[in-house]
Write a protein that binds this DNA or RNA. Structure first.
Lengths: 251, 251
DNA sequence: TGGTCTAATATGTATATACAAGCTAATGTT
DNA sequence: AACATTAGCTTGTATATACATATTAGACCA
């Protein structure tokens, strides 16, 4: 084991709840948190099974189970004889994963740009309180961002954010970094839901998205959880002629 | 072990390829095939770990791994002290799973009905050959079915089927049983892809779906594989005002 | 009859051990 | 210098064992 690895593993479980969860589950959670929060970057090497065994004083099969399950879940990738690494995000997984529109546009070789139309803070309306699962006196952020691919609008994003979980939301510059990036490091997503439907945009949305009236749009309503609390709820509107959702599954 | 269980396990691996795959993987594949093909129904009890150990002469941990992974994949459910069972299909998993529209409508407590508008056999057109990955002289079936929820059209389904993999497709009565049910038992699905977008229906589609012009529709193009071959390609058109896709994910 | 306890059975987790197989770097040879 | 071999690391799989915990059915007793 290298010195850096040793430092990596010192007090690894320190910031985890000392719940009576199985060892393999706590190890999974700890690693998943490192990855989700961005502390461990894609393609970075993860300690080997033998190193975990030495550092945590558990059996190799227990470590093996944790790493194997995280691999099945797409968090890690492993190569026999080589090691275990943080997995890269899939390019075409928009249907199954919460995606970062900036990365997606870039992966198509197109130019990405964003305009921030609104960013405010206030107490939750009744609708927002219901959607986010908070009281009506709870502080929330609201943002409206228009995302461009090659100077054509590709996504209109209206978002409500739980201020308790993402306190520095208003200080972000969303023309430089999408909300996704900040939210993932502030409150890593553990669960989420999508609701996808085809809708007609109203006059203002037509203008913003630069589409003619009667152009159908794909609307995605998404909520994401971090633990038991809802972090954010978003409504994403995509011009039907410029945007498709793609998904692939096995077994 | 009961006699029926014993019969169940006789020659369990008989119809599986004798490839040099790991034991746990072959057991997973064999069980998944029983479930996917409908031979083992939902909620049916699966042999216990001890029974598998006795019948296959392998260690319990190997069986445990197969059953545990199938549980993580949603094929089985397990209850400590009780046993292992074939899992029920999720109600709201339309986004992630290939769904059976009849079951979905029924699960909402609504009345399901279908009209078969077309059912024919012939050689593949160039477009079909490309979509299905076959030669242009390959035999395929084509069907058009309109699905109703409470006497309102909810899905227009245009489907091309590989006749080699589903030879009895034309003999089915799709007003009584959806193509999904026959296809799953004829050639269990191992992989699939979706392409989701918002579109405007043409005049004929508007009439069939009983929607006004300018009503946006959700179009899903889906292809499913059984092993290396494509079984079927379908285009599903849903009125936007009556249909939503829902998805949920963890971690 | 009704309730309680217990034995049997099921899955859940953890460990130690063993060997197979892939990759890399150092070593040795020509 | 160029090549081949090997040692040492990695993950992948399979087994035996142990104990924990959940559920059920039947034995037992009041």
């Amino acid at each position: 084991m290298t010195d850096s690895t040793s430092a990596l593993l010192d007090n690894f479980f320190a910031d985890l709840p000392d719940t009576p969860a199985p060892i393999y589950a706590r190890l999974k959670q700890a690693i998943a948190h490192k990855v989700a929060s961005g502390q461990w970057q894609a393609n970075q090497r993860v300690p080997s099974e033998a190193e975990w065994v030495k550092a945590l004083n558990v059996s190799r099969m227990t470590v093996n189970r944790a790493l194997r399950e995280l691999t099945a879940e797409g968090v890690l990738t492993r190569q026999q004889g080589l090691g275990t690494f943080v997995a890269q995000k899939k390019a075409h997984s928009a249907l199954f994963e919460v995606h970062n529109i900036a990365e997606e546009v870039a992966s198509r070789g197109a130019v990405y740009r964003a305009e921030q139309l609104q960013l405010s803070r206030g107490k939750a309306t009744v609708e927002e309180a219901v959607t986010l699962g908070v009281r009506t006196n709870h502080e929330i952020f609201r943002s409206v961002i228009l995302h461009f691919e090659n100077d054509l609008p590709i996504q209109l994003e209206e978002r409500s954010v739980n201020a308790e979980l993402a306190p520095a939301y208003a200080e972000q510059d969303f023309t430089r970094q999408t909300p996704y990036v900040y939210l993932m490091q502030a409150a890593p997503m553990t669960e989420g839901e999508h609701l996808v439907e085809a809708v007609l945009p109203n006059a203002r949305e037509c203008e913003l998205l630069q589409v003619t009236a009667n152009e159908p749009c794909l609307q995605i309503k998404r909520r994401t959880w971090s633990g038991a609390k809802i972090v954010t709820a978003a409504r994403l509107l995509h011009p039907g002629s410029r945007f498709q959702l793609f998904g692939h599954f096995s077994r």
